[in-house]
Design a protein around this nucleic acid. Structure first.
Lengths: 138, 138
DNA sequence: ATTATTTTTGTAATGATTTAAATTTTAAAG
DNA sequence: CTTTAAAATTTAAATCATTACAAAAATAAT
């Protein structure tokens, strides 16, 4: 993925690209660990001398509003973010702390919704023990 | 539901009953609106003169740990709570703000989990338009 | 160039939740 | 029924992620 491609994607979402926005998008694209605003800030600050936390928050909010990213509330304390916007589940391992994606059947949730209710955004969170930790006997 | 019955349920969860704990449990039992700690505090404070917010937070955390209630993070800002601990989904209407439960098939999520991962807690959140609001043309 | 608009920045404020320490309540033991 | 220990509650202060605000900088439009 090149900067030009990020620029194009952002524009397609109605987001005017800027150095900061491209950097955040690039970071999300390359780090599928569902980072927090703070993690993104810490990672990018060295390369963008004047970067401020507020910009990170503004940018993430903008991405979320425009559908270029998704906000994850699997943890109480802090928001996490994901460039993957198609419906999928998040699995958090309570031993190693990792948060991983898993795919869901397309109709998996929709079919359970009350009659005549319109579901517009779906979030599925599972807490448990991941395969790696289970293999270690956790 | 009488105080005696609440007492019994709390004991079954390893929670020593107290005036405050019974009051919180009673509130959760009677108000299936997924209230916040603040809402519970505001509702109970008049009847328990010395009640403090910390007690509400302590109590809700205890209930969650002991499995007598469930913590809901469907909203970024604040935690919400639910006495219903069986697996079920939460639907938040973005028009009227109500958060309602909906039932999920038992295997609905489990079957999508990665091989060998153990799911221990499941949360399903859907944001959208509820049937009532949809009927009003929202 | 000049002006208007958008974006970024820094700082201060907000507000939900937690911590820590003191006090009160409850339970246990003699 | 006292005394003592343990648990629960309270109060006030602290934390910390996020937001609000206003100024400065960058970008686009005229």
């Amino acid at each position: 993925m090149t900067t030009k491609e990020y620029t194009k994607i952002l524009r397609e979402h109605g987001i005017r690209p800027s150095v900061q926005r491209i950097a955040v998008y690039d970071y999300l694209w390359k780090h599928r660990t569902h980072p927090t605003a703070e993690e993104i800030f810490t990672a990018l600050a060295p390369s963008i001398a004047t970067l401020s936390r507020t910009t990170i928050y503004n940018t993430l909010r903008l991405f979320t509003e425009k559908g270029a990213a998704q906000m994850i509330t699997i943890e109480e304390k802090e928001m996490r973010f994901d460039v993957l916007t198609e419906i999928h589940g998040h699995f958090k391992c309570s031993h190693c702390g990792s948060i991983r994606d898993f795919t869901l059947g397309g109709d998996s949730i929709q079919k359970y919704l009350p009659e005549n209710a319109r579901g517009e955004a779906f979030q599925v969170y599972v807490h448990g023990t991941c395969a790696d930790c289970a293999a270690k006997g956790k």
